[in-house]
Each structure stands twice: as C-alpha cells, then as structure tokens.
Amino acid sequence: MTGLVAGLRPRDIEIGQSARFEHRVTDDDLDRYAALTGDISPLHMDAHFARSRGFRGRVAHGTFLAGLVSRLFGVHLPGRDCVLHSMSVKWVAPACVGDRVVVVATVTQISVEAAAMAAELTITLAETGAVLAKGKVQAGFTGSD
C-alpha cells in the first residue's frame, strides 16, 4: 500500500508545484461518510428531498470533499510524511452524486528549515471546470532529512 504513497521531502518541493486527482462522487461515498460521521441530513441521504430543495441530487457533505483534500496531501503531495497543520475551505457550490470532481493543490510556500509548506487548493467540477470549493492548507513533515 505504501508504494502508492509519495514520499516527498521539503527539498523535493518547489513553489508552484501541484498535484491533482479526480474522483466521481457515488451514493456509496455518501452512505459510508454518513455512517462514519452520523450526518444523515436528508440533503445528503435523500435524492428526492435534495431535488425538492433545488439541488441536482444527493449533495456531498462538504467535509467529505475536505477529506479528499486530506487524501491529496497524505498520498500525493507530499505524501507519506505529511502532517496537516491547518485547512481553511470555502464551499462555493455543491457536489452531487454522479459528479466527477477534480482536487488540486498548488504549493505557495515551502520552508525546508521549518519543514513546512503552504498550498492553495481548489475543487472543481471536471465536466465544466466550475469551482466547488477553494481554500488554503498548511502542512508539516514527519521525520528528518
């Protein structure tokens, strides 16, 4: 499993470096996230209810999308040695079941000496490029060079 996880160190990372992945939101995602967190709001669980409120279908929990950001940092950039310090996210538009979302982080600051990095993140809808969420992350590194 660890072979799938990057192991970048601060010296390997430059300002402007980015990482991304895509994920299609499924009913199973929301079922399992609701089971884990207990957030069973009908907006997330009931497609009929969500449509009655003007959405295209079951709305993904905003913090599920934030969880995808955790995946981006913990698996891709920097990967293995990442420890998230802080994350601020503004949810701009909903992601619904069936949507393919693109999670991107771009490094805005790297300090080799402090073993820390800052990055901007965006989550967009793959089909249209519409921004669903944006924010900032600060992360540190475990271990030493």
Binding site: H85, S86, Q109, S111, E113, A114, A116, Q138, G140
Partner: peptide, 20 residues
Amino acid sequence: VSHISLVLAVEREFGVSLNA
C-alpha cells in the same frame, strides 16, 4: 504548530527565508 505558522507567515510578509 502555531510557531511554524508564525515562521511561514513572517517569511511571507517580510520576504525572507529563515535558516534553522
């Protein structure tokens, strides 16, 4: 953790890169 945040914020604000 906030000390690291402080270091990064200081580096951003003052355009410096601090050594250990």
